[in-house]
Amino acid sequence: MAWLRAALTAALLLTAVLLQLTVLPLLHLPGATPDLVAVTVIALGLAAGPVRGAVAGFAAGIVLDLVPPADGLLGLTAVVLVTVGYLAGLLGQTERSPFSAVGLAGLLSAGSVLGLALVGGVVGDPRVAWDRLPGLLLTQFLYALVLAAFVIPLVAALWRRVDPPAPRYDVSPGSR
């Protein structure tokens, strides 16, 4: 059922991109716009492992850089989201309580904003505003916590439907 997994990933990412660009800015929240795409990539990484998280981050980053009103360099967001998805998958492989997963999502989302600023600084983007960065990091962390509380369980439940975990067999001797 590989096509089902790919279709679910594509559907989740496209919905997240659409909501982030069209709906979330209408809330006029102070500071950063809540980064639903980063949280979705993190949720996919937590549910599906580091490789799938990295691929989802790549796809989401390319889509965000292509779709209007993007104007920066193509690929910058992809670099950051690939790393975020990979880290989410790596750190999520150990069994985690829901609270620590949400906290991890918040930290990684704030990290993605920092990553965007750093990568932008490296390629010489004149728009990076270092004085606004602390405010953006803090607000992004808070909004990501709220978003992750809904998105992580939802993505995990959907992913279990298309990629059920292998049943565990008890192979220890003397278990008859």
Partner: peptide, 28 residues
């Protein structure tokens, strides 16, 4: 795989720095 994906992204950034890639954006 991670290295490959990062390399692809950075290649796109370099290509875009040199000015190509607008066609893809228009199509999207």
């Amino acid at each position: 795989i991670l290295g490959l994906l990062l390399l692809t992204s950075l290649t796109l950034v370099v290509l875009n720095l040199r000015g190509s890639g607008d066609g893809a954006r228009d199509a999207a």
